[in-house]
Design a protein around this nucleic acid. Sequence first.
DNA 1: CCGCGGGCCTGCGCGC
DNA 2: TGCGCGCAGGCCCGCG
Length: 277
Amino acid sequence: MPELPEVETVLRGLVPVMEGRVIQRVVVNRFDLRIPVTENIESQLTGAVCRSLFRRGKYVIAEFDRANPLIWHLGMSGRVRIYDAAEKYYPERHDHVQISMSGGVSVIFHDPRRFGSFYLSTSKDWTKDSAFSEMGPEPLDKNWGASQLQSKLSGKKSPIKTALLDQSVVAGLGNIYVCEALYMSRIAPDRASGDIHHSELDMLVKNIKIVLENAIEAGGSTLKDHMKTDGTLGYFQNQFNVYGREGEHCQRAACHGSVNRIVQAGRSTFFCPVCQS
DNA sequence: CCGCGGGCCTGCGCGC
DNA sequence: TGCGCGCAGGCCCGCG
C-alpha cells in the first residue's frame, strides 16, 4: 500500500468531493476486510455531513456531524476511484464500498487483497481508536526531529530498517521510503537502532522529510493527470534510487557499488553496501 | 518486554 | 499457452 505520500495524495483527491458534503448513499459489497466493515455502516452514514477529512499515518479519517469517525486504511492494494455526476460507474471486481455524495460524485474503495479497513470508530474521538493508541509522531511535523527519533530508538537492538517500519516509532513510513531514506542518509539498514549517532539521525530525519515531500509533490501532479482521465487515486510510479533495483549500479556517480537485496524481518531491503555503512 | 516469523488475501511476472 | 512459484508498498498475533 500506499505509504504516507500515497495516502496523502488520496486524501487530497477526496477532500474536494467529500468535505462539507452529505453522504447520500453507501453500498458495501464485502464486509470481510481484514478488519470487518462496520455492520449497518450504510444506515449510519446515510444523511451524514462529512465535517472534515484528514490523514494520520497511513490512515484517512473522516469526521461526521451524526456518525462516529470513519477509520479508513488502504492496506497494501487499496485504491480509490472517483466518478463525477456525468460519468457512468463501471463496477470492477474488488470494489468493496461505494459512497455517493451530494453533488453527484461517487467514491469507490477498491482493494483486491482486502488488507485495508473501512469501519466506524466506536468512540466519537478518533484518537481513542486502537489504531492510533500507539502511533508515533508524524514525520512531516515541524516538531519531529532527531531528538524525538533518538528517544524512540534508544536501547533498541533491532536494525534501523525494521525500527523505521514500526508505526509506533514514526508514523506513515513503509518499505519503499525507509529504503530510500536510509540510502540517502548513507546508513546501513542492519545497524542497531540504538547505536546510531544523533548527527546521523539528524540527517536521516531530514532525508525522510525530503523523500516524503518529494513523493507527495509527485503525487500531486499525478493526481492532476488522473483526475482528468480515469479518476483513480492510487499508487503513482516514482523514481526510486534503490527500491526494486537489485543488481543495478548505485545511483551515486562516484560509487562503484551495486544495489543489494536482503530480507529483514521478512521484508525486502534494498541498499548499497558500499556507500551505506 | 522484544523481535521475528507466519498469516491474512489476490494478482502479477517469471521461469520452465 | 499453461502452471507453479515467489513476491508484493501493511498490520496483527503468537511464540521463543
